[in-house]
Design a protein around this nucleic acid. Structure first.
Lengths: 375, 375
DNA sequence: GATCACTGTGGTAACGATGCCACATCCGAT
DNA sequence: ATCGGATGTGGCATCGTTACCACAGTGATC
């Protein structure tokens, strides 16, 4: 029941002290090093003059007595902390989990720590989260915005904000976006190149930059191929897999001529996949399926799902780096928006529609990964 | 490119102020309400006498001027904060993501916020994370321990610690564990009931409570069925899917008589699944596959994988609740360990071995969910 | 020999919230 | 009339850190 090699139970255990020993302060440190608190502070921070011999003595003493600067006192005094708020919708969704992971790693390496608030897509919870960030004086916040209110609150208080994945109109913060139009156009073109002409788009919203971009890319690809744009093929649904499943079933009942289905995100893809399985349709023979946002199950099923990989880790790391640059003053003064270029991952869920020969044309000029099914 | 209904761009925008307006302090609040800071403090916190008329005035003024108490000043003064540290291994792994989500939701509802540190399974990063927690004076920490050093550091400083999923020996903190022995025994018995006698266990470690418990449960099930325990069927591997895949391939080359495979966690299951796919083996006809820890892809593939569901959300929420109880002083004084009872989820990946008839016996006395394949 | 720049150190006043204590009422009881 | 308790309020010190300022040396320059 033990991690034997590491539990390090060698030292005698301290008795459960009723009052745990007071943490050493910079006063204690100064006393230990035989100097004043001011000098100790300068020695640690490197601001101002300190004789190098003294600095060494202070560092040694700090190590020796186990001095850890009090983050709260610092934050109070400096009116800013090493904390960065991360406000996302649903950490259970691999997209947000990877985003958060990328952010956390990059920020931790730069000496910041993250406070994570899950808003569940609720504007109310989002505002609550922003309030928390203000209360603890985060130096910056990274937000996948829901309503814009939270972002505005933070910006109005002078907090550095980076919007991730999507941006609210009318707010000039930094942002990191995925090139949704490009990715969507590319994967739609992939279907068209295979010979599909009746391609349905399953989508939950077109008000955010994400949904709007994906819809635009889908349209652009059809237009470029001079295919008709049939509004009935743009299938609205709610964000839940169950809703998507029902929507797909309704669509296929209504339109048996659909040969390819494009799910605008991983949740919808899940529902779509379940619907197709439930109907006993075989991929890619009976229907081709593609999805925006590559998540683990898509490479586990057989055949694997052809997707647009958003490079979510990169997205997160880029957000974090933007924050770091801003806070260190090395970012340009104007608000910056960076774009992550997504890439197409071709797997087995796409093929020429039944009885149609593939075009000779390739998938376009952009990088394409061809991934085998697992194994 | 906008979330139209909510962007709320109605109010005139504040000019980008060179010095963002100073945040109102309790002094400002006191002035606005025509009383002293002390009284304002009492009005807000409810400690001590305040005339109800005055309290109302203070609350109104707070609302009006947008007063938000400074968390750092509070933390400095009170020597503790509303922050709880969450120290986990890999938020990209759905197990940890769900754990973190459960924790965050429960704590947020109780007015705490979480600082998340991903240690990547590295003892060094874990200690670094603990140092961060100490620096910001978290009031408690929830840790999936790697080495025990971090937990010890925190406890030595008087921080309330809850160990999650596994516990380090020799440290008497609270903990929330999954009943690994029970879950493992149950799923192994399920295979035995189906008629399997040559069941391999793929496992990465047996030093932590998790691995040790799962191995013990596997053994107990074999013993209960009076089946021989063949040490060569306990297959060690590293924690990565790739390593697990190689290990499974090597096993099946060596032991073609294996009819069922039990992967001790979701990462190993991923590798195992890939290996089976790569070999063109059909589930459950050629081999039965089961896994400890139910993650999304396991219900997406066909057939679905039979698993032990650890109720990870519950695990997280229970940890959080333990923290809340401890901090509010309502937990028992002694260290408490709570157990989460896992449950068996039977899907299509398990069946009688080729040419064997199923026992009449049921799966045992514990609750069992039978989940259909998706659709 | 006075002035100046530079190096190096310590004292002190904040940062914002809070809880103790002193003080001021007002009421009923002695 | 005095006391004591209950109710209500404000002053002040404090949490730990840091930036500003004053000041003390030292050496170089006029």
């Amino acid at each position: 029941m033990v991690r034997k090699p590491e539990d390090g139970g060698g030292e005698p255990r301290r008795e459960a002290a009723p009052h745990p020993r007071r943490r050493p302060t910079i006063q204690d440190l100064a006393r230990a090093a035989g100097i004043s608190p001011s000098t100790a502070s300068r020695a640690l921070s490197g601001n101002g003059y300190v004789a190098s011999e003294v600095r060494a003595r202070v560092l040694a003493a700090a190590e020796q007595i186990g001095y850890v600067p009090d983050g709260n006192a610092r934050a109070l005094r400096n009116r800013t902390s090493r904390a960065v708020g991360v406000l996302i919708s649903d950490i259970r969704n691999p997209f947000y989990a990877n985003l958060a992971a990328g952010i956390e790693e990059q920020l931790r390496a730069a000496g910041y720590h993250v406070i994570v608030v899950n808003n569940g897509g609720q504007a109310e919870a989002e505002v609550e989260g922003a309030r928390t960030f203000l209360a603890v004086r985060v130096s910056a916040a990274i937000v996948t915005p829901v309503s814009g209110r939270a972002v505005r609150m933070l910006m109005d208080d002078g907090v550095t904000v980076v919007q991730a994945d999507r941006m609210v109109d009318g707010l000039t913060s930094d942002g990191v976006l995925v090139d949704n139009v490009q990715g969507s156009q590319e994967i739609t073109s992939h279907l068209i190149d295979l010979g599909h002409t009746t391609i349905a788009l399953l989508i939950d919203e077109t008000d955010w930059t994400t949904g709007a971009g994906r819809l635009a890319g889908y349209r652009a690809a059809l237009r470029a191929a001079r295919l008709p744009m049939d509004p009935a093929l743009v299938v609205p649904t709610r964000f839940q897999p169950d809703a998507a499943r029902d929507a797909v079933n309704a669509l296929l009942d209504r339109r048996p001529d659909v040969t390819a289905l494009f799910a605008a995100n991983n949740m919808l893809a899940e529902g779509a996949f379940q619907a197709l399985q439930g109907r006993g349709l075989r991929l890619p023979d009976d229907l081709s399926l593609v999805a925006f946002d590559d998540v683990p199950w898509m490479s586990m099923v057989s055949p694997g799902i052809t997707t647009v990989d958003q490079h979510t880790d990169d997205l997160g790391r880029t957000c974090a780096q933007l924050v770091i640059d801003r806070l260190s003053g090395s970012a340009p003064t104007l608000a910056t928006v960076r774009y992550i270029e997504p890439s197409l991952v071709i797997r087995g869920s796409t093929a020429a529609p039944h009885g149609v020969r593939t075009h000779a044309a390739g998938a376009g000029s952009r990088p394409v990964t061809t991934a085998p099914s697992p194994g």
